[in-house]
Design a protein around this nucleic acid. Sequence first.
DNA 1: TTGCGATACCTTTTTATTCGAGGTATACTC
DNA 2: GAGTATACCTCGAATAAAAAGGTATCGCAA
Lengths: 114, 114
Amino acid sequence: MAQTNPPFMSGIPELLLLRLLGEQEMYGYELVRAVRRVTGEAISLGEGVIYPALHALERQGALKSRRKAVGGRTRVYYSLTARGRQRLARLAGEWRRVQSGVETALAGDAGAAS
Amino acid sequence: MAQTNPPFMSGIPELLLLRLLGEQEMYGYELVRAVRRVTGEAISLGEGVIYPALHALERQGALKSRRKAVGGRTRVYYSLTARGRQRLARLAGEWRRVQSGVETALAGDAGAAS
DNA sequence: TTGCGATACCTTTTTATTCGAGGTATACTC
DNA sequence: GAGTATACCTCGAATAAAAAGGTATCGCAA
């Protein structure tokens, strides 16, 4: 793994893609910019992350795609399936669990008794 | 990667270990339970994660260890070095950046203009 | 006195997945 | 006609989390 964002990124691309595509259909190149925008520039994912992730999610039935020609270029638009919606809900819940666990650990007194 | 907690765990073990050892020295087996406790049972790390992580951090100079015999058994106590303290500060900052980026993405209107 | 659960350490193998770098091609602007 | 932006894609490397399994000691109970 090379790093730009570094650690803490596992599962994040998938979560963000599902989140964005849950609102509206988008194409890969657009998602690269959208991720930056909706995370307040905190997270940036390259095409080498986005495209493979999109393909994997489609293979798993969480996304469906359709090609659309726009001004001579072809774009591949992705949108969530019902399965994808379930996956988003599950992942978001898991994120919240991990997030709150870490938050508790960072904030709290590490020596405090249970 | 097998999963118990599943995704979102990259970098978390290292962050939690540094956090805990920044408060007081502890030994591996103790850390397994301490992680569960300080995360409010949200996160559980097995020995197969803790020990290799401890060894790696020591190798990198973020931790130092000392053996201590306690009732016939030998425990290896770890504590933070100055280097480890820096690493904790940097990792905690990165965690906060990623965390807030995801938070913004999950909470906000994904379609909102910048 | 043996057997078992808890304590305490450790390593090896598997497997997912992020990331950078590179590759193709079209469109638009200068 | 050169360069930049758009748009798709793949490959290879590196990381590191997790499970499972291995050793040994201790204390307790049957």
